[in-house]
Computed example of a mutant assay.
Amino acid sequence: MEITILIADDDPIFRELIRDMLKKESYIVIEAENGSDALQAFYDNSGIDLIILDVMMPELSGWEVLDEIRIQSEMPVVMLTALGDERNEIQGLHAGADDYITKPFSYPIFMARIKTLLRKIERKKTATLHCGELILNQLEHKVFVDEEEVFLNNKEYQLLEYFMHNKGLTLTRDMLINQVWGFDFDGDSRTLDTNIKTLRAKLQEAGRYIQTIRGTGYRLEELKKNE
């Protein structure tokens, strides 16, 4: 799983040091030399997983960049500073930073703290299923279409989760019924068809991803807008 980290620090030597540490661990690194560049990199790169911000930077300080990021995202942010002042650490944590590291620091301690945050990211990534603009978060049992939350009942959610785990595969009606209602279900396939109909409606534009395979069952497949 690829992890992308943005480093923002106006000291090129220190920035290079952090970059080399992270690349040694096979992380993808994006660099910014001031606060404005850091904020622009955040907006330009949707795949960033974690941000490391120096507090004292030209144009925009690390605090100002953090404030702007928190308006848009809960992405993990680590603050770096040469100020070994408890007040700065408290300020960083209250401002929404996930961790606060004082320079200078050792390689093992730095990487241990970064990896602690990244483990949370990796768990979240593996728990999130995607199909076009459709996103299902298994940890929170939430579904989003174009970043707007969609509210499903339990059966609809189970159906969608099963579809997304088997994206691109044709699932028979029996497979779907057994998965969601169980082997001892004594109803008929009309119950399934009704739930599929309501699920499609709630998913709005993404509902067309659930395709009917005549005489067999259904398949979830990402389609372009004009398909």
Results as ranks from 00 to 15, higher is better:
residue 1 M to N: 07
residue 2 E to L: 12
residue 4 T to E: 14
residue 7 I to R: 10
residue 8 A to I: 01
residue 11 D to G: 12
residue 14 F to Y: 14
residue 17 L to K: 09
residue 19 R to Y: 11
residue 20 D to R: 13
residue 21 M to R: 11
residue 21 M to G: 08
residue 21 M to N: 15
residue 23 K to P: 06
residue 24 K to C: 05
residue 25 E to R: 14
residue 32 A to S: 13
residue 32 A to I: 02
residue 38 A to C: 08
residue 39 L to Q: 03
residue 41 A to E: 11
residue 42 F to Q: 04
residue 49 D to V: 06
residue 50 L to V: 02
residue 50 L to D: 03
residue 56 M to G: 04
residue 60 L to A: 01
residue 60 L to N: 01
residue 65 V to D: 00
residue 66 L to M: 10
residue 67 D to S: 07
residue 69 I to G: 08
residue 72 Q to L: 09
residue 76 P to H: 11
residue 79 M to D: 04
residue 80 L to C: 02
residue 85 D to H: 07
residue 90 I to G: 03
residue 90 I to W: 04
residue 92 G to C: 06
residue 93 L to N: 06
residue 93 L to A: 05
residue 93 L to R: 10
residue 94 H to Q: 14
residue 94 H to S: 14
residue 95 A to P: 02
residue 97 A to L: 03
residue 105 F to E: 08
residue 106 S to D: 13
residue 107 Y to C: 05
residue 108 P to C: 06
residue 114 I to L: 09
residue 115 K to L: 03
residue 117 L to E: 02
residue 119 R to A: 03
residue 120 K to V: 04
residue 120 K to D: 08
residue 120 K to T: 07
residue 120 K to W: 06
residue 120 K to F: 08
residue 120 K to Y: 08
residue 123 R to D: 09
residue 123 R to E: 13
residue 124 K to C: 00
residue 125 K to A: 07
residue 135 I to L: 12
residue 136 L to T: 05
residue 140 E to M: 05
residue 141 H to F: 04
residue 142 K to M: 11
residue 143 V to P: 05
residue 143 V to W: 05
residue 148 E to G: 01
residue 151 F to M: 06
residue 151 F to T: 11
residue 153 N to K: 03
residue 154 N to S: 13
residue 156 E to R: 12
residue 158 Q to H: 06
residue 158 Q to P: 00
residue 158 Q to F: 02
residue 161 E to M: 01
residue 161 E to Q: 09
residue 162 Y to R: 00
residue 169 L to N: 13
residue 178 N to Y: 08
residue 179 Q to V: 01
residue 182 G to S: 12
residue 182 G to Y: 13
residue 182 G to M: 14
residue 185 F to Y: 15
residue 189 S to H: 13
residue 191 T to E: 13
residue 191 T to H: 10
residue 192 L to V: 11
residue 193 D to G: 03
residue 193 D to R: 15
residue 194 T to F: 11
residue 195 N to F: 07
residue 195 N to A: 10
residue 196 I to G: 01
residue 198 T to H: 09
residue 198 T to W: 05
residue 199 L to C: 08
residue 200 R to E: 02
residue 206 A to R: 10
residue 209 Y to K: 06
residue 211 Q to A: 01
residue 214 R to Y: 14
residue 216 T to P: 01
residue 217 G to F: 06
residue 217 G to Q: 07
residue 218 Y to W: 15
residue 219 R to C: 12
residue 221 E to G: 03
residue 223 L to C: 03
residue 223 L to T: 13
residue 225 K to Q: 13
residue 225 K to I: 12
